[in-house]
Design a protein around this nucleic acid. Structure first.
Lengths: 186, 186
DNA sequence: CGAGCAATGTCAGTTACTGACATGACAGTA
DNA sequence: TACTGTCATGTCAGTAACTGACATTGCTCG
């Protein structure tokens, strides 16, 4: 006999996603989530800072981007290095397409969740800029590149989850990047 | 004799900014803000959707950007039209430099407020994209241009409030835009 | 066997936010 | 002048997010 059922955190995350999907984010109480996971409300808040964070926990996404940037060849330009980061993140998400679609539908349905998502992506942009600075990129080029890169990612990701049959995320990223090049030149 | 003291909304906004500055956003209750404005908590929530929104009310900023985009000559490229919008917003803020600095310091000190600010800017980017689409710009160029333009603005604005003695906001915007051109070409 | 620890539970409290209803001038109208 | 509606505000009660303090439970290690 184990002391407690294992994976409390992921049970909570699973219950939360299910409930947000079934009845909406605002109509779901933390007590309900905890109950479905067989835990108490207090325990929920030990695992997640707030009711929104349960959909955004785990920093693997940001980590993969940073790793991609850091691992890019020294000769790469700022944009090329950032693109290497996006590509790494694309690889990470590739096999979670269905999950990404479900999660994104839930987020899109709630202003509170959208707000948190925007914030998270902004934080990634900041971290990306930091990684570029480590590579010797000066300001404001680093910050600007970080934000523009995240715009490219957001654009590609949106198309990826919109069409259920979507193609490769990493290819969509390359397409968005080409769009950007066209625009900025004019 | 007037029925009630006038400008309830701006009194609340003023009291809120003062209190957030004095004791921090998290340590300030809505009841305190209302009391300082000579009103009740309930009335606060009739004027502002939530405790954060009091620093973000009034859509003049977004409106000026959209007006600038809409008023750009037909021959202008997407980026040029977006830049016209940023320029209009720059003109709007020009004479509120000190206020912008105070407000930005308060926002920077609170994660909740930063989150709301990021969301607001994202909403402006979306509206900007919409204005571009009205001009005939197709997707994903419109969305991408909207977001990139807001990155440029954010970058310029940040430098504008950082240095108290800063130069012209509109000139900083032009500089940021040139930075972007350099980056995107590489 | 006992001490300590780590994850959870219990409980009480604060505060953001909401709905329902009351109130107090003022505006127009008979 | 009295009557009535309206609009901004006040009052009050309630829900639910979040927090701090303390108790509990089994496991682990000596």
């Amino acid at each position: 006999m184990v002391r407690w059922r294992p994976n409390a955190q992921s049970r909570l995350a699973q219950a939360a996603l299910d409930l947000y999907e079934e009845q909406g984010f605002e109509n779901t109480t933390v007590a309900e989530i905890a109950a479905r996971a067989g835990l108490t409300e207090r325990t929920f808040f030990r695992h997640f800072a707030d009711k929104r964070e349960v959909l955004f926990a785990g920093g693997e996404f940001q980590e993969s981007i940073i790793a991609g940037v850091t691992g890019a060849p020294e000769s790469a330009s700022p944009i090329e290095a950032a693109t290497a980061g996006l590509d790494a993140a694309g690889a990470l998400l590739e096999d979670r397409h269905e999950f990404a679609i479900r999660r994104q539908r839930v987020i899109a349905a709630s202003p509170d969740l959208r707000e948190r998502e925007v914030m998270k992506l902004a934080a990634v942009a900041t971290a990306l800029a930091g990684a570029l600075r480590t590579r010797g990129v000066a300001e404001p080029a680093a910050t600007l590149t970080g934000e523009v890169a995240m715009s490219v990612f957001r654009n590609a990701f949106e198309r990826w989850v919109d069409q259920a049959s979507a193609g490769d995320l990493r290819e969509l990223i390359r397409e968005s990047l080409n769009e950007l090049r066209t625009l900025a030149g004019s």
